[in-house]
Amino acid sequence: MSAFFISDSVPTGSDIPWNQDKQRLLMQGEILVETRSHTAWGGAVTAWMYVPLVRSHVWQQITDYPRWVQYFPDVTKSEVLQRGEVKRLYQAAQKAFFFFTAQVEIYLNVVEELGQQIQFKLEKGNFHDFTAKLELKDCDNGTLLGYTVQATPTIPIPSIFIQQAMNFELPANMRKMRQVLCKGQ
């Protein structure tokens, strides 16, 4: 399935003003994506997808952080370093850009709002800034999963290239995540 890029209001918060056409596209497996500028060298993106599983089951799987290497092909390691009200997460990734391969390491502070959302904030790593949020909403007999990321890598790549990469790669990553989440169901 292809990604469906939308230009009008895409929810980046808790209000989801879906019209019937957009909701139908989500239910058919499309990934709705909105990219925006963030900094001169960074980008921001929000993607939404429908997962045909109840929210509690999706939550249980996405909070299994070591499993993220299965969801995102570029992530080579995902490890919980500290548990508690604020978790500490280490992730490593490898990404090919143009004529070189970038190795990325990131330490994140993770705050979960049980069954609702997960917020990720950069502690340290190969980014000037990095924040992400996963949101889960009930939708028919399944779950609407929203993923918002804004980041500025330390590698000086113009934001237009970062945004294009997010536009093309995030839908594929989201489809892979849905495939892994639904495996065996």
Rank of each mutant, 00 (worst) to 15 (best):
Q116L: 06
Q117E: 09
Q117F: 01
Q117H: 09
I118F: 02
I118P: 06
Q119C: 08
F120K: 06
F120M: 10
K121D: 04
K121L: 07
K121M: 08
K121I: 08
K121E: 14
K121C: 06
L122V: 08
L122H: 10
E123N: 05
E123F: 07
E123Q: 09
K124N: 12
K124W: 09
K124L: 10
G125A: 07
G125T: 00
G125N: 07
G125D: 07
G125H: 03
G125L: 05
N126F: 06
N126Y: 01
N126E: 11
N126S: 15
N126M: 09
F127I: 15
F127G: 03
H128Y: 13
H128E: 07
H128R: 14
D129Y: 13
D129A: 08
F130D: 02
F130S: 01
T131V: 08
A132L: 05
A132M: 04
K133R: 14
K133F: 00
K133M: 15
K133L: 13
K133V: 15
L134S: 06
E135Y: 10
E135R: 13
E135M: 14
E135L: 10
L136V: 12
L136Y: 00
K137I: 07
K137S: 12
D138R: 14
D138G: 11
D138P: 05
D138T: 11
D138S: 10
C139W: 11
D140L: 09
D140W: 11
N141G: 05
N141S: 14
N141H: 12
N141L: 13
N141K: 14
N141D: 12
G142F: 06
G142V: 10
T143L: 11
T143A: 03
T143E: 07
T143Y: 02
T143K: 07
T143V: 08
T143N: 08
L144V: 10
L144Q: 04
L145P: 08
L145F: 05
Y147S: 14
T148D: 08
T148M: 06
T148V: 06
T148F: 14
V149P: 01
V149N: 00
V149G: 03
V149A: 03
A151I: 03
T152R: 00
T152I: 14
T152F: 00
T152N: 01
P153D: 05
T154Y: 08
T154K: 15
T154C: 03
I155N: 00
I155H: 00
I155Q: 05
P156L: 15
P156W: 13
P156R: 06
I157R: 01
I157C: 01
I157F: 06
I157T: 11
P158L: 14
P158H: 12
P158Q: 13
S159C: 13
S159L: 03
S159N: 13
S159H: 15
S159Y: 01
S159P: 00
S159E: 12
F161K: 05
I162L: 09
I162Q: 03
I162D: 01
Q163Y: 05
Q163F: 02
Q164K: 09
Q164E: 14
Q164A: 13
A165I: 06
A165V: 02
M166K: 07
M166P: 00
N167R: 15
F168N: 12
F168S: 09
